[in-house]
Amino acid sequence: MNEKNNTLLIYTLLYFGFLYVPVLFLPIFSFNDANFMSFPLAGFTTEHYEEMWSKRNLHKALWASIKVGVVASVVSTTIALFAAKAFARYKFRGEKISYGGIMMPFLIPEIILAVAILVIWVNLGFKLGLVPVTIGHTLFCTPFAMLILIARIEGFDFSLEEASRDLGENAWGTFFRVSFPLYLPGIIAALLLSFIISFDEFILAFFLTGSDATLPMYMWGQMRFVQKLPHVLALGAVIIVFTTFIVLLAFWLRNVGQGKAKKDITMKL
Protein backbone atom coordinates (compact mmCIF):
# COMPACT_ATOMS: atom_id res chain seq x y z
CA MET A 1 0.00 0.00 0.00
CA ASN A 2 1.51 3.30 -0.99
CA GLU A 3 -0.88 5.74 0.56
CA LYS A 4 -0.62 7.08 4.09
CA ASN A 5 -3.20 6.81 6.78
CA ASN A 6 -2.92 9.52 9.36
CA THR A 7 -5.97 8.53 11.37
CA LEU A 8 -4.49 5.10 11.96
CA LEU A 9 -1.08 6.57 12.70
CA ILE A 10 -2.52 8.87 15.37
CA TYR A 11 -4.50 5.98 16.82
CA THR A 12 -1.36 3.81 16.92
CA LEU A 13 0.59 6.52 18.70
CA LEU A 14 -2.21 6.93 21.24
CA TYR A 15 -2.15 3.19 21.78
CA PHE A 16 1.59 3.39 22.44
CA GLY A 17 0.77 6.02 25.03
CA PHE A 18 -1.80 3.70 26.63
CA LEU A 19 0.85 0.97 26.83
CA TYR A 20 3.71 3.07 28.13
CA VAL A 21 2.28 5.86 30.29
CA PRO A 22 0.98 3.64 33.12
CA VAL A 23 4.34 1.93 33.41
CA LEU A 24 6.15 5.28 33.50
CA PHE A 25 4.22 6.48 36.53
CA LEU A 26 6.26 4.17 38.76
CA PRO A 27 9.63 5.79 38.04
CA ILE A 28 8.07 9.28 38.11
CA PHE A 29 6.58 8.85 41.57
CA SER A 30 9.63 7.03 42.85
CA PHE A 31 11.46 10.38 42.83
CA ASN A 32 8.53 12.23 44.37
CA ASP A 33 9.01 13.55 47.87
CA ALA A 34 5.64 12.46 49.29
CA ASN A 35 3.85 9.38 50.51
CA PHE A 36 0.85 9.82 48.24
CA MET A 37 0.97 9.23 44.56
CA SER A 38 -0.88 12.23 43.27
CA PHE A 39 -0.26 15.37 41.25
CA PRO A 40 1.17 17.94 41.60
CA LEU A 41 4.55 16.37 42.36
CA ALA A 42 5.97 17.49 45.69
CA GLY A 43 9.69 17.66 45.05
CA PHE A 44 12.64 15.63 43.90
CA THR A 45 14.21 13.08 46.22
CA THR A 46 16.29 9.92 45.99
CA GLU A 47 15.36 9.01 49.54
CA HIS A 48 13.13 6.13 48.45
CA TYR A 49 16.04 4.56 46.64
CA GLU A 50 18.31 4.92 49.65
CA GLU A 51 15.64 3.29 51.77
CA MET A 52 16.04 0.09 49.77
CA TRP A 53 19.56 -0.44 51.13
CA SER A 54 18.31 -0.80 54.67
CA LYS A 55 15.58 -3.37 54.05
CA ARG A 56 16.90 -6.77 55.06
CA ASN A 57 13.75 -8.58 53.94
CA LEU A 58 14.05 -7.02 50.53
CA HIS A 59 17.59 -8.33 50.14
CA LYS A 60 16.49 -11.77 51.23
CA ALA A 61 13.61 -11.74 48.75
CA LEU A 62 15.87 -10.52 45.96
CA TRP A 63 18.34 -13.31 46.62
CA ALA A 64 15.51 -15.87 46.71
CA SER A 65 14.20 -14.63 43.36
CA ILE A 66 17.65 -14.79 41.81
CA LYS A 67 18.19 -18.36 43.01
CA VAL A 68 14.80 -19.53 41.76
CA GLY A 69 15.22 -17.65 38.49
CA VAL A 70 18.68 -19.02 37.72
CA VAL A 71 17.77 -22.64 38.46
CA ALA A 72 14.40 -22.45 36.69
CA SER A 73 15.83 -20.78 33.58
CA VAL A 74 18.82 -23.10 33.26
CA VAL A 75 16.76 -26.27 33.77
CA SER A 76 13.88 -25.17 31.56
CA THR A 77 16.18 -23.99 28.76
CA THR A 78 18.08 -27.30 28.83
CA ILE A 79 14.89 -29.33 28.71
CA ALA A 80 13.46 -27.02 26.06
CA LEU A 81 16.60 -27.32 23.92
CA PHE A 82 16.20 -31.10 23.61
CA ALA A 83 12.48 -30.78 22.95
CA ALA A 84 12.95 -28.01 20.39
CA LYS A 85 15.49 -30.11 18.56
CA ALA A 86 13.04 -33.03 18.41
CA PHE A 87 10.29 -30.85 16.92
CA ALA A 88 12.54 -28.98 14.51
CA ARG A 89 14.47 -32.02 13.28
CA TYR A 90 12.14 -35.01 13.19
CA LYS A 91 8.72 -35.98 11.95
CA PHE A 92 7.32 -38.48 14.37
CA ARG A 93 4.15 -40.08 15.60
CA GLY A 94 2.27 -38.16 18.26
CA GLU A 95 4.07 -34.94 17.36
CA LYS A 96 1.00 -32.73 17.78
CA ILE A 97 -0.04 -34.26 21.09
CA SER A 98 3.47 -33.98 22.55
CA TYR A 99 3.68 -30.38 21.40
CA GLY A 100 0.31 -29.57 22.90
CA GLY A 101 1.24 -31.31 26.15
CA ILE A 102 4.47 -29.35 26.55
CA MET A 103 2.71 -26.07 25.70
CA MET A 104 -0.11 -26.76 28.18
CA PRO A 105 1.47 -25.12 31.25
CA PHE A 106 1.57 -21.88 29.27
CA LEU A 107 -2.07 -22.21 28.23
CA ILE A 108 -3.97 -23.19 31.36
CA PRO A 109 -4.65 -20.59 34.05
CA GLU A 110 -1.64 -20.34 36.35
CA ILE A 111 -3.76 -20.52 39.47
CA ILE A 112 -4.74 -24.07 38.54
CA LEU A 113 -1.10 -25.14 38.16
CA ALA A 114 -0.35 -23.50 41.49
CA VAL A 115 -3.21 -25.22 43.30
CA ALA A 116 -2.40 -28.61 41.79
CA ILE A 117 1.28 -28.42 42.76
CA LEU A 118 0.30 -27.16 46.21
CA VAL A 119 -2.00 -30.14 46.82
CA ILE A 120 0.54 -32.77 45.77
CA TRP A 121 3.46 -31.09 47.53
CA VAL A 122 1.71 -30.79 50.87
CA ASN A 123 0.35 -34.33 50.65
CA LEU A 124 3.77 -35.76 49.96
CA GLY A 125 4.68 -34.27 53.34
CA PHE A 126 7.15 -31.71 51.97
CA LYS A 127 7.48 -28.19 53.29
CA LEU A 128 6.46 -25.26 51.14
CA GLY A 129 9.33 -23.04 50.09
CA LEU A 130 11.53 -22.16 47.17
CA VAL A 131 11.80 -25.75 45.86
CA PRO A 132 8.16 -26.14 44.76
CA VAL A 133 8.28 -22.58 43.38
CA THR A 134 11.30 -23.51 41.29
CA ILE A 135 9.54 -26.63 40.00
CA GLY A 136 6.49 -24.56 39.10
CA HIS A 137 8.59 -21.94 37.34
CA THR A 138 10.53 -24.56 35.40
CA LEU A 139 7.25 -26.03 34.20
CA PHE A 140 5.95 -22.60 33.25
CA CYS A 141 9.14 -21.38 31.51
CA THR A 142 9.78 -24.50 29.41
CA PRO A 143 7.13 -23.71 26.73
CA PHE A 144 8.47 -20.14 26.33
CA ALA A 145 12.04 -21.33 26.01
CA MET A 146 10.96 -24.02 23.56
CA LEU A 147 9.20 -21.53 21.27
CA ILE A 148 12.30 -19.35 21.09
CA LEU A 149 14.59 -22.32 20.47
CA ILE A 150 12.39 -23.93 17.83
CA ALA A 151 12.49 -20.66 15.90
CA ARG A 152 16.28 -20.70 16.13
CA ILE A 153 16.74 -24.35 15.22
CA GLU A 154 14.22 -24.39 12.37
CA GLY A 155 16.42 -22.18 10.24
CA PHE A 156 19.34 -24.46 10.97
CA ASP A 157 21.04 -26.43 8.22
CA PHE A 158 21.15 -29.99 9.51
CA SER A 159 23.62 -31.05 6.82
CA LEU A 160 26.27 -29.31 8.94
CA GLU A 161 25.67 -31.88 11.65
CA GLU A 162 25.74 -34.71 9.15
CA ALA A 163 29.01 -33.43 7.72
CA SER A 164 30.51 -33.39 11.20
CA ARG A 165 29.36 -36.96 11.80
CA ASP A 166 30.74 -38.06 8.44
CA LEU A 167 34.07 -36.50 9.32
CA GLY A 168 34.24 -38.80 12.31
CA GLU A 169 33.03 -36.63 15.17
CA ASN A 170 30.77 -38.41 17.64
CA ALA A 171 27.35 -37.21 18.74
CA TRP A 172 28.58 -35.17 21.72
CA GLY A 173 31.45 -33.67 19.75
CA THR A 174 29.06 -32.69 17.00
CA PHE A 175 26.72 -31.13 19.48
CA PHE A 176 29.34 -29.09 21.30
CA ARG A 177 31.43 -28.09 18.29
CA VAL A 178 28.80 -27.58 15.62
CA SER A 179 25.25 -27.27 16.86
CA PHE A 180 25.76 -25.60 20.21
CA PRO A 181 27.73 -22.58 18.96
CA LEU A 182 25.13 -22.01 16.26
CA TYR A 183 22.21 -22.32 18.69
CA LEU A 184 23.98 -20.21 21.29
CA PRO A 185 22.30 -16.84 20.65
CA GLY A 186 18.93 -18.60 20.85
CA ILE A 187 19.95 -20.42 24.01
CA ILE A 188 21.03 -17.21 25.72
CA ALA A 189 17.83 -15.46 24.62
CA ALA A 190 15.80 -18.34 26.04
CA LEU A 191 17.77 -18.24 29.29
CA LEU A 192 17.29 -14.49 29.70
CA LEU A 193 13.58 -14.48 28.92
CA SER A 194 12.93 -17.50 31.17
CA PHE A 195 14.79 -15.78 33.95
CA ILE A 196 12.66 -12.66 33.54
CA ILE A 197 9.45 -14.69 33.51
CA SER A 198 10.47 -16.48 36.69
CA PHE A 199 11.73 -13.27 38.29
CA ASP A 200 8.37 -11.54 37.78
CA GLU A 201 6.12 -14.52 38.40
CA PHE A 202 3.66 -14.03 41.21
CA ILE A 203 0.82 -16.58 41.38
CA LEU A 204 2.89 -19.77 41.68
CA ALA A 205 5.11 -18.07 44.24
CA PHE A 206 2.08 -16.79 46.14
CA PHE A 207 0.72 -20.32 46.64
CA LEU A 208 3.98 -22.19 47.05
CA THR A 209 6.56 -20.09 48.89
CA GLY A 210 5.35 -20.53 52.43
CA SER A 211 7.53 -18.12 54.40
CA ASP A 212 10.44 -17.68 51.92
CA ALA A 213 9.22 -14.67 49.98
CA THR A 214 10.38 -14.00 46.43
CA LEU A 215 10.66 -10.42 45.21
CA PRO A 216 7.11 -10.15 43.79
CA MET A 217 5.82 -11.65 47.05
CA TYR A 218 7.77 -9.04 48.99
CA MET A 219 6.28 -6.24 46.91
CA TRP A 220 2.80 -7.72 47.33
CA GLY A 221 3.29 -7.67 51.10
CA GLN A 222 4.40 -4.03 51.09
CA MET A 223 1.64 -2.79 48.80
CA ARG A 224 -0.91 -2.92 51.59
CA PHE A 225 0.79 -0.24 53.68
CA VAL A 226 0.59 3.27 52.30
CA GLN A 227 3.67 4.51 54.15
CA LYS A 228 5.77 1.69 52.70
CA LEU A 229 4.68 2.27 49.12
CA PRO A 230 7.38 4.77 48.06
CA HIS A 231 10.24 2.30 48.37
CA VAL A 232 8.19 -0.26 46.44
CA LEU A 233 7.96 2.36 43.69
CA ALA A 234 11.72 2.77 43.71
CA LEU A 235 12.17 -0.99 43.65
CA GLY A 236 9.64 -1.24 40.83
CA ALA A 237 11.48 1.40 38.82
CA VAL A 238 14.76 -0.49 39.23
CA ILE A 239 13.08 -3.73 38.17
CA ILE A 240 11.57 -2.07 35.10
CA VAL A 241 14.94 -0.72 33.96
CA PHE A 242 16.63 -4.05 34.60
CA THR A 243 13.91 -6.05 32.82
CA THR A 244 13.87 -3.74 29.82
CA PHE A 245 17.62 -4.07 29.44
CA ILE A 246 17.55 -7.89 29.63
CA VAL A 247 14.61 -8.19 27.25
CA LEU A 248 16.17 -5.90 24.65
CA LEU A 249 19.36 -7.92 24.90
CA ALA A 250 17.38 -11.12 24.40
CA PHE A 251 15.50 -9.71 21.39
CA TRP A 252 18.75 -8.60 19.84
CA LEU A 253 20.36 -12.01 20.45
CA ARG A 254 17.45 -13.85 18.90
CA ASN A 255 18.15 -12.13 15.64
CA VAL A 256 21.93 -12.47 15.60
CA GLY A 257 23.13 -14.29 12.51
CA GLN A 258 19.65 -15.05 11.30
CA GLY A 259 19.19 -12.83 8.28
CA LYS A 260 16.33 -14.43 6.45
CA ALA A 261 14.70 -16.37 9.22
CA LYS A 262 14.23 -13.13 11.15
CA LYS A 263 10.61 -12.73 10.31
CA ASP A 264 9.61 -16.20 11.39
CA ILE A 265 10.98 -15.64 14.84
CA THR A 266 8.52 -12.93 15.68
CA MET A 267 5.76 -15.19 14.52
CA LYS A 268 6.62 -17.69 17.18
CA LEU A 269 6.41 -15.33 20.09
Binding site: A83, A86, Y90, I112, L113, G136
Partner: peptide, 27 residues
Protein backbone atom coordinates in the same frame (compact mmCIF):
# COMPACT_ATOMS: atom_id res chain seq x y z
CA UNK B 1 13.07 -41.08 14.02
CA UNK B 2 10.31 -41.88 16.50
CA UNK B 3 12.77 -43.22 19.06
CA UNK B 4 15.20 -40.35 18.50
CA UNK B 5 12.50 -37.75 18.84
CA UNK B 6 11.09 -39.24 22.02
CA UNK B 7 14.54 -39.59 23.59
CA UNK B 8 14.98 -35.86 23.09
CA UNK B 9 11.47 -35.12 24.29
CA UNK B 10 11.61 -37.31 27.36
CA UNK B 11 12.86 -34.68 29.86
CA UNK B 12 10.13 -32.25 28.81
CA UNK B 13 7.44 -34.93 28.84
CA UNK B 14 8.56 -36.23 32.25
CA UNK B 15 8.46 -32.68 33.60
CA UNK B 16 4.95 -32.11 32.27
CA UNK B 17 3.72 -35.46 33.59
CA UNK B 18 5.27 -35.17 37.05
CA UNK B 19 4.74 -31.46 37.65
CA UNK B 20 1.41 -30.98 35.86
CA UNK B 21 -0.53 -34.12 34.93
CA UNK B 22 -0.05 -36.05 38.19
CA UNK B 23 -0.73 -33.00 40.40
CA UNK B 24 -3.84 -32.21 38.39
CA UNK B 25 -5.14 -35.76 38.71
CA UNK B 26 -4.55 -35.55 42.45
CA UNK B 27 -6.35 -32.20 42.55
Amino acid sequence: DNIKAYTLLSPALILVILAMVVPMVLM
